[in-house]
Design a protein around this nucleic acid. Sequence first.
DNA 1: AATTAGCACTCTATTATTTAGAGTGCTAAA
DNA 2: TTTAGCACTCTAAATAATAGAGTGCTAATT
Lengths: 342, 342
Amino acid sequence: MVDDRKLKILRVIIDDFIRTAQPVGSRTLAKKYGLGISSATIRNEMADLEELGFLLQPHTSAGRVPSEEGYRLYVDSLMQDYDLDIKQQDLIRKLLLHRVIEIDDVIHQAAKIMADMTGLVSLISLPQFKKSKLENMKLIKISDSKVMLILVSSSGIVKNLTLAMSDIQQRVLDMISDTLLSKLHGTPIEDITPKAIHNIKQELPEYADLIEYLVPLLRDTLREIDDVDVQVEGINNIFNYVEYQEVAKVKDVYEKLTSKDFLSKVINTRPMNSEVSIGIGKNNSLPEMPECSIVSSFYNFNGKQAGSLCFIGPTRMDYSLTVSVMGYIKETLEGIFSGIYL
Amino acid sequence: MVDDRKLKILRVIIDDFIRTAQPVGSRTLAKKYGLGISSATIRNEMADLEELGFLLQPHTSAGRVPSEEGYRLYVDSLMQDYDLDIKQQDLIRKLLLHRVIEIDDVIHQAAKIMADMTGLVSLISLPQFKKSKLENMKLIKISDSKVMLILVSSSGIVKNLTLAMSDIQQRVLDMISDTLLSKLHGTPIEDITPKAIHNIKQELPEYADLIEYLVPLLRDTLREIDDVDVQVEGINNIFNYVEYQEVAKVKDVYEKLTSKDFLSKVINTRPMNSEVSIGIGKNNSLPEMPECSIVSSFYNFNGKQAGSLCFIGPTRMDYSLTVSVMGYIKETLEGIFSGIYL
DNA sequence: AATTAGCACTCTATTATTTAGAGTGCTAAA
DNA sequence: TTTAGCACTCTAAATAATAGAGTGCTAATT
C-alpha cells in the first residue's frame, strides 16, 4: 500500500515544500530530482498519497502540500538526520562556554543560539527555583534604608531582591539570616511560607519584631518569583515566516510570545516522557496556535529533568535541522552543568 | 498672511488627521466641525495653507494632509493642552508608588504607563550608573565557587554580579571589599579602572594574589555594564500604527527598537536644553526613522538631569496627550525620587 | 471684496474581466 | 506498469471599467 517509492516521493515533496513553501507539482518534481520516473507516474502516486491522507491539494490545479499526517510520517521515519558540522558544533560550544558563571546566562545564550541557527522561536525554561532546595541565604545591608536578600538554590540559581527596611546593623541581619538558614537549609523554596518563618521567631526573641516585619516582605517577594521561568528568543524571526504575511497575524503571535502565561502554558503542556517530542499543527496541544509545530525536549541537571527546550515555528519548519540543533544544545548544556558548572 | 481663520482651519485639519489618519477634505471639514464657512471658502484657505507649506496633497483629488511644517506650527502654537483628569493622575501615581524599592522598577513601570496611555513606544534612560559615584560595595560568598559583587551608586542604583572564585572565607572578602570601598568611596564608577584597584594591592599585601585575580574580573564586569541603560516599552504598539501595513516595515522598526545601540543613539541625540522637545519627521535627528516623531524630556535627580523620557511614534501622533503624559510622569518621578525615595 | 454655489475635471480605489500558465486526471499507446 | 498526450480546472496577474471623493475655477451672491 505505502511502498518504498511512495515514501520516497513523499519525502522529496516535503523536503521541497519545507524549502520553497510552494505547492509541489509533478512536473517540477520529476525535473528537479532525478527520480527516474515520469511526471505521469508521480501524478498517480501523488493521488494515492493524497487519498492516504499524507498530502493535500490547495485547489484542483495546484501542486500538493504535506498534510499534518504527512509531516508526522516524515518526522517519524522519512527525514534524514542532519549532522551539524564540526565548525558549527565548535561555535555552539564556544558561545555556551564563553562565560559560565550564572546559570541564567548560559540558558539565555543557549536559547539565542537555538533561535539563530534555526530561524525559529526558541524557549528554554530554567530549573524551577521554587521547587529546588534552599542552599544559602544572606541579608546584606546596602544602604540605610535597604537590605538585599540573596537566595541560592541547590541547583545553583541565585536570586536577589531588595527590601526596604529601616536602619539595622549588619550584625543583626547576619544573626537573623544565619538562624533562618540553619532552620530552612534544604527546604524546598516553595515551602518557605510565612508560617514556617513565623515559627522561627521563637529562636530569636530579641528580634521578634524584625522577623515579624520580614514575614510579609518575604512572602510577597517569593510570590513574585515566577512559577515557571522561561527564556524566549528569536521572536524577531516571526517576521520572516512566509506564513505571516499580514500584520494582524504577526501581531497575534507576537502578543502570545510575549505573554508569560502563554509561555508557561507552552512549557507545561509538553510531554516529558520522550527524548524529543514533536507536536505538529493541531496536535501540538496548543489550541491557540493550530498552525504551528512545536519541537521540545528537556535537559537534565543532577540527574533530574530540570527544564525544557522548545522550538515554535510553522509546520513547514526544517524538522531535521531543528531536532539536530536541539540535541546538540541539550548535550552541551548537560555537559556544562555536570562538569564545569557547580 | 496667516490670519486666525487659517490657523483655526489648520488646527482642525491636523486634529482630524491625527484621529482618522485619512486625508481631510473640505466637504467633511465643513460638515463635521461647525466652522460657519462653506466648503468652497475652506478650499480656498486650504490652497493657501498648502502654498504656505503647512499642508500636502497626496494627489490632486485627495484631501489635505499636514506637512512636517504644519505639525511644527501645530505643536508650537496651535494644539490645545490636554489635561489628564484626576482619575488618570491618581492611577499613574498609584502605579508608580506601588512598590518603590528599586529605581529600576520605578523607571520600568513609568515606561510601561507611558506606552499604555499613549499607544506609542516609550523609552526611559536610567541615571548613568558609570557616571555616578560609588557609595557601597560588598563581596558576598554565595557558594564554594561563587562570590557576588554588589555595587551601590550614590544615586541608589544597585548592580550585582556573580564572579567565579575559588573558595575564600567571607572574612577575607570583607577585608578586601572594605579596603576597596574605603579607597574608592565617592569615586565615579567609570574611574574604577584596573589600575586604580591595582594600586590598592599594597594595602593588603597578604591578599595581593587575590586582588590580582579580581582585577580582570572587575574590569570585565564593569565593561559589561551598558553605557546607557534604556528601558523600552510599548513595542507591541507598532502593530497598531496604520502607517505600518506591511510586515517588512514593522520588521524594520522592530529590529531598531530592540537594538541597544539604536536606543542609546535615540537617547543621545536628544537635546537636553528644553523642557519638552519635539522632533518631527525628518527633523527628529534620527535619519533611520524619518517618518517618526520623537517627543523627549528628562527627569532630574538630586538636582541634575539624570535620564531621558522619550516617545517614539508616527508623525501623526497625539502630541497633546503625549506632552501631557510626559509632563506628569516627569513630575511624579521627580517627586518619588526627591521625597520618599532615598 | 469676500463668500459661496455649481460644475467640469482628476485621480484613486474598487470591482469586473481577460489572459496566461501551472498542474491535474484520464485515456490510450508503449 | 509506465508514460505520452490532451482536455480541463483553477489561480494569480494583468487589464479594463466604474464609482466616488475631492479639487479648482467661474460666476453669482452677499
